[in-house]
Structure formats: structure tokens, C-alpha cells
Amino acid sequence: MNAVPAQPEELSQNQAQGYTVARSFWQKEAVLAYLFMVPGALILLIFMAYPFFYGLYISMTDRFVGIPGSHFIWFENYRYLLDDPVFRKVVRNTFVYSFVTVPFKLVLGLGLALVLNQQFRFSRFFRAGLLLPWIVPTAISTLAFLMLYNGTLSPISWAFRHLGLMNGNINFLGDPVNAIISICVANIWRGVPFFGISILAGLQAVPDDLHEAAALDGAGAWRRFWAVTWPVIRNIVLISTLFSIIWTFADFQLIYVLTKGGPANSTHVFGTYSYQTLGVTDLGTAASISLYMFPFLAVFAIILLFYVRRED
């Protein structure tokens, strides 16, 4: 990446043009900037902003897909959800799901990064291999977990039985607490590589000589980490955390495959409940459920971005 490309020959032929470019520099820069935003903005406007605002509008109607006519009812759907006992469980589960898994993913990801940052044989293959959980399509890897948690076929249950630790099969997905734990483990498994690789990227920016200097000063590993490493990786840790919170909060597929929110709604989250509500064509309520996530996510985003910016 530090290879300086050769100056192309033709550049010198455009001296005159270059002069005008330089003269109208600031003006030109702003114009170019807006121009550069156009392709991405166009895609985001058509395929993101429009559906989003349309969804926002739908959430304030009592629209059912197959039933003609609908009324604008302001925040009635949102109010209706507030005294929906299932929805209250959904909010609780989503918070538990996010705030249990994200710290684990962070700590394990950090550990993974510290391990992979060392020099050892075949490290490249380990690095790619340990990315596997992130690469395999979730729809399929979750099925592998469904099997590991299966009431009949689970090899984990088999091992426990044969070690004489228990008689029956472990009730991974049928007990409310076990179900949440099982789902969290699958989520953590899937999420660790992203943290690991991101933090590893941050670690590579830590200058070795600083570490050595600190070591010579007699600082222990723990102090060296906080004094030398942490300031460098702090931003990427915060940003990764933010992304992970957003993904986990809005997660749908993993829980949908494993429990569909059961047993008795004990693992339902926003995404799965919204999808379930869509199943009965109740567009308005489904949209409101999804949109309830938005303020929470916005608050997380603002807090974390504030911390990231404060440093700059």
C-alpha cells in the first residue's frame, strides 16, 4: 500500500486545464462533492428513504393488505401495542438479547484479535478459517444450531447423557431461560469474527516500539494494554459495538429459524413479531412494531457517535 504509482505521462499535456482547475478550486470542490453523492443518494432515496417514509405512513393507518380502504389513525397502532402483553415481552427480550450478546461478542472478539495478532505458523489460514461463522449464510448455519439444539438429535445432549450428567435430553429451546441462552450463544458465535477482525485491524495500527518502550518502563501487560493499545483501538471498538447493537437489535433470521419467538413468546423480538404480524396481513401494526426500534437505535447511535467524535 505504500507503493507510489508512477506519474502518468499524459498529465503534463493538460497544463492549461490544470490551471483553471486550481483557480476555481473551492467552488469546483463543492460541486464535485454533491455530484459524487448522486449515485449513492439516488439508490438510497429510491430503495430506502421512499419505502421508509411509506412504512412510516402505513404505521399510522389501519391498513390490512387484502381489505379495501384504510384510515389514517395517527399513533393508534403504537398505543395499541403499548398495552399488548406480547409486545412488552418483545421489548424486554430484544434488550436482553442485545445486551447479553454484545458484551460477550466484544470481549471474545477482543480476545480473538489479541490471539490472531501474534506471529505463528499458518496464521493466515487461521485468520480466514476463524472468519467462517461470518461467511456461511446465516440461513444455513442457524440450521446447524437448530440441529445442535434438537430435542432428539442434539450431540450435546448425547455427550451429557453419556458422561452420566443427565438422563434425558437437554431442553435447549423448550425452556424460556435455556431458549434465550441458546439463541444468544448462536448469535455470539456468528458475531465474534466480525469483532475479532475489526479489532485485529485496529491492533495492527498499534506501534510496536511504543509497547517495547512501555515494557522497558516496567509496565505490565494489563497496563500496557490500557496505556498503549486501547487509545488506538478505542474508536474501532466503539464503532463495531454500535454496528453490532444495530444488527442484533434488528435481528430476525436467527430467532425465526430457531424458535419463531417461542416457547410462549419468551424469545420474540421486534423483527420476528413484526414478521408474524405481517402473516395476518396487518400492515399497520407490523410497521409500527418495526418502527418502535428506530428511536432506540437512534439513541444508541447518537451516544456512541458522540464518544467517537469527542476524541477527534
Partner: peptide, 12 residues
């Protein structure tokens, strides 16, 4: 009953 039934889907 088999207690794991609480976690079965249609394939269980």
C-alpha cells in the same frame, strides 16, 4: 410427555 416438546417445531 417428552419435555423438550416445548421447543419443537413441526419437524420435532
Amino acid at each position: 410427555y417428552d419435555g423438550t416438546g416445548l421447543g419443537w417445531d413441526d419437524t420435532g
